[in-house]
């Protein structure tokens, strides 16, 4: 209990463990991947919201949609340009972005996040 030496050794080991992820990843910086658009997405030109907004905040939009659809039963979304969309991951988002691996996964992997959306929502079959 009063053994200062042991406490210090313990502290050092503890801090070392805490910092482990940092030096484990040190020097591994990779270039951020660019999401790729399918021909269909390119042709559509616009998404349901501004590209810049979608890039940073699509998860918030999806979160809102899921709340509105499941809890509120409202299934139609009017974009700022007046166009109406059916709020559905499968039928709207993935209809254009049918290349999950190149559009979604690249960035998610890069960011080391694995959204649990895919536990239930089904990604389109991709032809390689």
């Amino acid at each position: 209990m009063y053994d200062a030496g042991k406490i210090i050794v313990g502290l050092i080991i503890g801090i070392g463990l805490l910092l482990f992820p940092f030096y484990y990843n040190a020097g591994k910086a990779a270039k951020a991947p660019e999401p790729q658009l399918t021909p269909k997405a390119k042709e559509a030109k616009v998404c349901v919201a501004e590209t810049s907004y979608m890039k940073t905040s699509h998860m918030h939009l999806l979160e809102r949609w899921r709340q509105e659809v499941v809890r509120g039963g409202e299934r139609y979304y009017t974009a700022s340009n007046g166009k109406v969309y059916y709020k559905s991951v499968e039928e709207t988002c993935l209809d254009c972005h049918s290349n999950k691996s190149k559009f979604c996964d690249q960035c998610h992997d890069y960011m080391r996040i694995s959204p649990y959306c895919w536990d239930c929502h089904i990604a389109p079959k991709e032809t390689k």
Binding site: G73, R75, S88, E90, E91, Y116, D119, C120, H121, I122, P124
Partner: peptide
């Protein structure tokens, strides 16, 4: 399986049941 790719499957650990096809009624 999955037979309808426009409808989600469920994750393990949740409860499910008939919803009177709310997704169809909506349209």
């Amino acid at each position: 399986f999955p037979t309808n790719r426009d409808y989600p499957t469920r994750s393990k650990g949740v409860v499910e049941k008939c919803t009177f096809c709310d997704e169809r009624i909506a349209r």
